[in-house]
Nucleic acid binder design. Structure first.
Lengths: 237, 237
DNA sequence: AAGTGGTCTAGACCACGAC
DNA sequence: TCGTGGTCTAGACCACTTT
C-alpha cells in the first residue's frame, strides 16, 4: 500500500481526472448524452485506484455535469436550462443548452462619449465602446443588450464580429471577471426596445443591469431587457 | 477486509453520519462555530473506516453546512441567509436599514388544502399553512407576500402575530435555512394584488418566487409581488 | 455472465495548525 | 510533537443493467 510516484503538478488525482473529463466536454469531444469512459477504463488510463476515479465522477455528477446509472454507465448530462443570476452566463450558451438556435443582430458597434456611460465605467474621459445587440432564440427575440465597454480592458472590442460570438463570451475569454454587481427591475420598455423585442404593448420587461470588474477596472456596464413572457431568472443559494 | 454487519436501515453509512450531524445542528446541540467531532472520533462512534466519515463530512462542507480546516478541525458553518448573493433578507430589516417604518397587514392566516401548494412543499397530503400579508414602508405598500408553510417544520405557524414579526424572521429564528431556490419574473399583477399594492393600472410587478429548505424538508414556498416603481433587487457576485 | 456503478475497509503518507 | 483533515491504495461485496 504505497503511494505512487509524485505527480508533476501539485493537483490531486481526482481533480486531474475531473478536469480531463470537463476539458473533453468543453472541446466537444464529449457531447450531452455521450457515454463517458467507465471507472475501470479511467483507472487504467490514469493509473489510480478505483476510489479515486469514483470520487472524480461522483463530484461531477453532484455538479450536474454527468449522470451516472448503476449497471449502465456514466453519461454527459444535458445542459441546465434555467439562467441564473448568480453566475454570469452567456445567453448563447443558455439557448444552446435548451437545444435551440441562437442568433444575434448587431444594431450598433461604435465609440461613444455618453457621460453617463463614462461615469458607469468609472473613467475620467471617453470615448468608451458601445454596442447594441438583439439576441434571438429560434428566431424569436429574447434579449436586447445595451452594453458599454472599457477600452482599457478590451481595446479590440470594436473589431469583433458579435454575430459569431457574444460580447459576454468574448470578454470572458479574454479576461477573468472578478466581481459583478447587478440590479433587477420590472420595467415597461420604451418604444424602441419593445419593437426590437417584438413585444405586445403593455407587456413588461425583466431588466437586468450589471457591471463587472476585471482587476480594479470596471470592464463593462450592460443593460439587458427581456420580454417578461419569454424569460425569467432562476438560481439557488 | 470484510464488510461489517448489515445495518438495520438500507442507508449508506456516510449518509447516516451526515444525517446524524445535521440532526445535531437542527436540534441546536451543535451551533454555528461549534467544533464537530473529529474524523477519528466519528470513526470510533460509528465503527466505520475513516474514508467513510471523511466522505460524509466532505459532502456536508460542499453543501455549506460545515467548514473544515486542515490541522485544526471541523466547524459548523455560520448561517448563510444574509451572506449570499440574492440575500434571503427580511423586508422589515431592509426597510429599517433605510431608516423607515415597517408595517404589516395580515390578510389571511389559515390552513389550506391547495394541491399546488402541497406539491410545492413536496408533501403527500395537506393541510399546509397559508398566509397572505401586505408589507408597507412608511405606510406605502411595497410587498404582497403569499406564503405556504410546511406544518412539519413550523407547527406553531398559525399562532404567530405577523404584524409584530415577519414570517421570514420567525422562520429564520426557529430553523436554519440551508438551501433556497428562486425564480424572478416581471409580471402584470392581477386585480387583487394591484389593489393591495395601490398600483397604477399597467404598472408591472417584480415577482420573486422562492422555496427554502430546512434539512431535507421544503420549509416554505412563497410568492412575493413588488410594485416595479418602488422596488428592485440588487446584489454582488 | 459480464460489466457497470455504489459503497466500504484498513491501512498509508502528507500538509498543516496548535501547543 | 501531536492531532487534524486531504488524499490515495488495492482490494472487496453488492445491486443493477445489458447482453
Amino acid at each position: 500500500m504505497q503511494k505512487k510516484t509524485v505527480r508533476s503538478a501539485p493537483m490531486p488525482a481526482y481533480e486531474q481526472i475531473k478536469r480531463h473529463v470537463l476539458a473533453q466536454i468543453e472541446s466537444g469531444a464529449l457531447r450531452p448524452g455521450d457515454v463517458v469512459p467507465s471507472e475501470t477504463e479511467l483507472v487504467k488510463e490514469f493509473g489510480v485506484a478505483r476510489m479515486t476515479v469514483s470520487r472524480a465522477l461522483r463530484e461531477l455528477m453532484a455538479e450536474g455535469v454527468l449522470n451516472r446509472v448503476r449497471g449502465s454507465g456514466t453519461y454527459v448530462a444535458p445542459r441546465q436550462y434555467e439562467s441564473t443570476v448568480l453566475q454570469i452566463r452567456n445567453i448563447a450558451d443558455e439557448i444552446a443548452a435548451r437545444g435551440h438556435r441562437h442568433s444575434a443582430r448587431v444594431l450598433a458597434l461604435e465609440a461613444s462619449d455618453d457621460p453617463n456611460a463614462i461615469a458607469a465605467l468609472e473613467l475620467g474621459t471617453g470615448p468608451v465602446f458601445h454596442s447594441r445587440i438583439v439576441h434571438s432564440e429560434e428566431g424569436e427575440p429574447i434579449q436586447y443588450e445595451d452594453r458599454y465597454v472599457n477600452p482599457e480592458v478590451f481595446p479590440e472590442y470594436l473589431a469583433q464580429d458579435f454575430t459569431a460570438e457574444t460580447p459576454n463570451h468574448y470578454m470572458v475569454r479574454l479576461a477573468p471577471i472578478q466581481r459583478a454587481e447587478f440590479r433587477i427591475y420590472a420595467q415597461k420598455p420604451d418604444a424602441r426596445v419593445r419593437q426590437y423585442l417584438e413585444m405586445e404593448i403593455g407587456e413588461p420587461c425583466l431588466l437586468l443591469l450589471r457591471r463587472t470588474w476585471v482587476g480594479r477596472h470596471v470592464a463593462t456596464s450592460v443593460r439587458l431587457w427581456h420580454p417578461a413572457s419569454r424569460f425569467h431568472l432562476a438560481g439557488t443559494v
